[in-house]
Structure formats: structure tokens, C-alpha cells
């Protein structure tokens, strides 16, 4: 059975996206596991509601749909956090998701927060003259962390946990901002590659224009993930899948037909971003140290909010 046979198509009959055969998942099972996961996380934490940042992109749209399936859209708060240069189309797509789901939403412009630090209109901000000349990477990371700050404040105000929306591909190559977009209470799609996110999005009914558009962090105008990294997601996903999930060596990947330079570049990205995927190490000094030899599940009797 070819997985591509069941993919949604555009008006010309072409698939909306490419799904490598080995990455195709059983979306019914995935939806059930994720729904149970979301409900279980909430129950153990003593919460009933969830908050997420809705960007207009496919990852957060998919999570909004999965949360709505698991606990109902009425228990979800979607927060839109555009910066002044954010694409208006992204906002339109986010609003389409909100309208389709019927969840509540809030709009929080982060422009004043970001410009207050980096400065705007020739005026230096709190970050000083150096910050005014900051490269887009610094600005992008700062924006992601401002959005995190807003989400965690809304979490307290709304009484909902922050649900993560990062996918496995971007996590593995480190295409995330530490303590920014990767910050969350739990993540239902963090073990799905981008290609699988697209497949599952089609299955749950994420709007077609959200699935079809080029993925972008939308940190500056016309930015796209694939343009920035010079890769295609299906190819990147396949390399990561065979290298990590299926433990193939570099030599074996090359023998399978992958380009050596690309494989080595992906391996470097994975290795250099390892720190982003782990809890920071604590210097071991005492008899019992969290994460080393003090090992408890995150939630146990007495853990839930009362």
C-alpha cells in the first residue's frame, strides 16, 4: 500500500505535500494515543484547560485540533502574538483555525515588548545601542522568548497548562529557541516528523491552506524554513528517521542514496543542538540530586494542583 495514495490533493490533483512511505503513520492510532496523552497529562497535573500560541502555521494548528478532539475547544485558549513584521497571512490562517474550532482566543502584539528592548525608529531600547544593531537571529530568539513569557502569563490568568507545538524534525536539528518556542508543560507532537505532522493535519481537518503553505518561523518577512536551511522537509525527515530511529550508520545512509555532505550536515546539526533537548546539568555535590539519583515521575500523589 502506498501511503501517498490517500493524501489530499490540490485543485490540479497533485498531492498537497510529499509523504515518504517509511514515515507514513496510522493516523487513527496516533489520534487516540495523543488524546489519551493530553487528557492524562491534565488529570495528573490537576488542570482542565490548555493554552497555546497559535502562529498560523501547521504545527500549532494541528495541536489546536488535537486538543479540541481530546478535551473540547471550549477548554482551549489560543493566543495570537504577532510582531509588526509578522505576515498578515499567518494571522488570517490562525483566525481561520480559531473560527473552525470555536475556541477562545486573545491577541497580544509583542511589538512594544520587542522594540522596547531593541529600540525602534532610531531610538535605542532597553538593550542599549548594541541591541539596536542586533542580527535577526537575536531578534528572532528574543521574540520567541517574549511569546513564551506571554503564554506563561496567560497560563496563570486562564488557569491552563501551556501545550507545546514543536515537531521532532525541528527539535532534532535544533531549529528552536531554548526557553522560547520549545517551552511547554508537555508536547503532544514532539515525536512526529514534519512529514507526519502534515499527514496527521490532513487527517484531523486542519485547513488546506495551512497544510499547503511553506513552513516558516515567520521571524522576518518571507523567511521559510526550507529556504533558510536549504533542505526539503521530506528529505530531512528521511535522513533523521534512518539515522536516529532506525540506527543506520553514515555509510549505510550513503549506500541508500543519500548525499554524504547533506548527511554529515544533518549529523552536525543534531550533535550541536543536543543541549537544547535536555534539562541543564546540575553539578553533583550532595547525596541526592534531582535528575541524577533523585528520580521521581513528574506527577505522583500530591503533585496535582488542588
Amino acid at each position: 500500500m502506498s501511503a501517498t495514495a490517500r493524501l489530499p490533493v490540490d485543485e490540479r490533483g497533485r498531492p498537497l505535500f510529499e509523504l515518504p512511505d517509511e514515515l507514513a503513520i496510522d493516523t487513527d492510532v496516533a489520534r487516540r494515543v495523543i488524546a489519551d496523552f493530553i487528557r492524562g497529562q491534565l488529570r495528573q497535573a490537576g488542570f482542565e484547560r490548555l493554552v497555546l500560541g497559535l502562529s498560523g502555521g501547521i504545527d500549532s494548528a494541528l495541536v489546536a485540533y488535537l486538543v479540541s478532539e481530546a478535551i473540547g475547544a471550549d477548554k482551549l485558549l489560543a493566543v495570537l502574538m504577532p510582531y509588526r513584521t509578522s505576515s498578515p497571512a499567518s494571522r488570517g490562517d490562525a483566525e481561520a483555525v480559531i473560527a473552525a474550532l470555536g475556541c477562545s482566543s486573545e491577541l497580544v502584539e509583542i511589538t512594544a515588548m520587542v522594540d522596547g528592548y531593541f529600540g525602534a525608529g532610531g531610538e535605542a531600547g532597553a538593550g542599549g545601542p548594541d541591541a539596536a544593531a542586533a542580527a535577526s537571529l537575536r531578534r528572532g530568539n528574543f521574540m520567541a522568548r517574549m511569546r513564551m513569557s506571554v503564554l506563561y502569563d496567560k497560563s496563570a490568568a486562564f488557569g491552563g497548562l501551556v501545550v507545546g507545538t514543536g515537531n521532532k524534525t525541528e527539535s532534532l536539528i535544533g531549529y528552536t529557541t531554548l526557553f522560547g518556542d520549545s517551552a511547554c508543560a508537555f508536547n503532544p507532537i514532539g515525536d512526529l516528523y514534519k512529514s507526519q505532522v502534515r499527514q496527521l493535519s490532513a487527517a484531523v481537518g486542519v485547513p488546506r491552506q495551512v497544510i499547503a503553505k511553506a513552513p516558516s518561523a515567520d521571524l522576518w518577512p518571507d523567511q521559510t524554513d526550507e529556504g533558510e536551511g536549504a533542505f526539503s522537509y521530506p528529505l530531512l525527515d528521511r535522513i533523521l528517521y534512518w539515522r536516529i530511529d532506525r540506527r543506520r550508520s553514515t555509510d549505510e545512509l550513503v549506500a541508500m542514496g543519500f548525499e554524504l555532505a547533506l548527511v554529515e550536515r544533518v549529523e552536525r546539526l543534531v550533535a550541536t543542538s543536543e543541549f537544547k533537548r535536555q534539562v541543564p546539568p546540575i553539578a553533583k555535590l550532595g547525596p541526592r540530586t534531582a535528575g541524577v539519583d533523585y528520580l521521581y515521575p513528574r506527577r505522583r500523589p500530591g503533585s496535582a494542583r488542588t
Partner: peptide, 8 residues
């Protein structure tokens, strides 16, 4: 969850 699995 590979789709090729007999029972998903």
C-alpha cells in the same frame, strides 16, 4: 505508529 504495521 508506522502505517505498514498490521494493526497500526
Amino acid at each position: 505508529l508506522a502505517a505498514r504495521n498490521e494493526v497500526g
